[in-house]
Amino acid sequence: MKTWTFFLAGLAVGALTFGAARLTGNDYVFFAGYVVLQSVVLATAWNILGGYTGYVNFGSSAFFAVGAYTTVFFYKTFPMPVPLLVLCGGVVSGIIGLGMGYLTLRLRGAFFAIATIALLVVLQTLIVNWTYVGGSRGAYIIRPQSVPLLGSYIQYLFLIMLTLAVVAVTCARLIERSQLGFGFAAIRDDEMAAEASGVPTLKLKLIATTISGAFMGMAGAPFPYYISYLQPSSAFVLDYSVNAIAMSMIGGTSTWLGPVIGALLLGTLQQVASVTASPAVNLLIVGLLLIFFVIVAPNGIVGLAQSLRARMRR
């Protein structure tokens, strides 16, 4: 399938999803769906760096939070419509991703992973001490009661996240099948051999951190409008980092489909579980699933399906 065809098909699936959700006539569906779609974007973004190049980012929450706080900042200085804020969040997080890459990508993978945790704490400390965006007390965002055409505001946010998810997945698929994605895979398999084959590893890794960071920031940008009261402790929670990794690993990291499957499955499971179980139980399940999958099915659900198909063919 050509990228444009795929993108349009994605939009069509999105439109159907939106229509179906409207048919339920229940705004809760949109509240829950928003979180699931946000997971799709975060997992897809994580996978562009983590799955394709093999560099583990534990700081997804930081990039998400930077997107969210960019919105808070502009809410106070120069109010804009949410789609523009998404772009702003993407740009700022992308720049942070680029800087992060410059700082650490000359190092071996493990140091990069540790540095991402460091980045998380440093950024959180900066935000906690920055009173303009609310500091440790947090910031209120007053969202309009309704929007024209759609009615409820949550449906508007849902639609934005849905579009973003389609864009992110299309972009991930495009990268995967391009020369760029081919180079990413070479880096993941053997960085030294990649260099000896002429792959400009540093440049490619910087591209990956920038794109990955930008999408995470975009996922975070509408968040203040979603919860309407943003605290550092709600934006910087490790949960986003764990979810992004777990969803990608459970789905399978080598293709665009893996994170999507992982996020839809795990995200929906979490939304259902959140009705009955405490959030802690919820996260415990995610953590245990992550450990289980990395040990038992290292290539995730997609990997399982592939090996099953290969076995049937024989």
Binding site: G54, V56, I245, M249, L290
Partner: peptide, 10 residues
């Protein structure tokens, strides 16, 4: 590298 890290993170 990749999965071992995820394991400890888990």
């Amino acid at each position: 590298a990749l999965r071992g890290l995820a394991f400890f993170f888990g």
